[in-house]
Amino acid sequence: MIEIKNLSKRFGSFVAVDDVSFQVGRGEVLGFLGPNGAGKSTTMKMATGFLAPSSGEVRICGLDMLGDPMRAKEKIGYVPEGAPAYPDMTPQEFLEFVGSVRGLAGDAKRARVEEVMKLVHLESHRHRPIEKLSKGFKRRVGLAQAILHDPEVLIMDEPTDGLDPNQKHEVRKLIKSMAPNKAIVLSTHILEEVKAVCTRVIIVNRGKIVFDGTPADFEARAPRGTSEPAMDVVFRSLTTSDAAKA
């Protein structure tokens, strides 16, 4: 449902994303990993239509993001990095605003906002201005906003960043429960998260894909007998050896 073909982004002479291609189908949860500055957020910004690619193609449920952005965007729920939201609004007002833009109205909108607030445990803070919420609650507002219209494609940039262990667990549970009907991409710096929720892993380094496979394949690449968690070792070998060569 997500098709990314030969996607590149250059900022001046700097290549942030370099010829990235992948597809994500219904039921897949793709973990998008890579060191800081690897190009994860940039790729997601192009996939969601915020950034125009320097070259390449993005298709969402068959709709071309460049040719038919409005309809393609309807299919996507997106949590941008840092989960931005209007600071002077309350979660309730904010979600109702997003609901209106997403085409919900009246009782249906109210009911859906209610439902989503329950899903991310936001009810207790519904009337507090977003700027006064803690980081974890802000993140939940961002998540709620993204799933409000029950999108077929869910793209989340570090959705569990800043959440406490209980909330991380809740969010992972939520992602897993939604997974069967959606195509999900999430970026993270937490390698255990990959094992916990992802069905597939892509590692990017310096804008290029250096690994694409299942979490089990990923872990299996570790040499035997290291005391460190296997994934950490593989991640490091994939993202630093390449950097040394370049």
Binding site: K45, T48, G49, F50, M70, R71, K73, E74, I76, Y78, P80, G82, P84, A85, Y86, V98, V101, R102, Q145
Partner: peptide
Amino acid sequence: GTIELLMTLP
């Protein structure tokens, strides 16, 4: 940063 949100809504 809400511009990113606004511009990725339909």
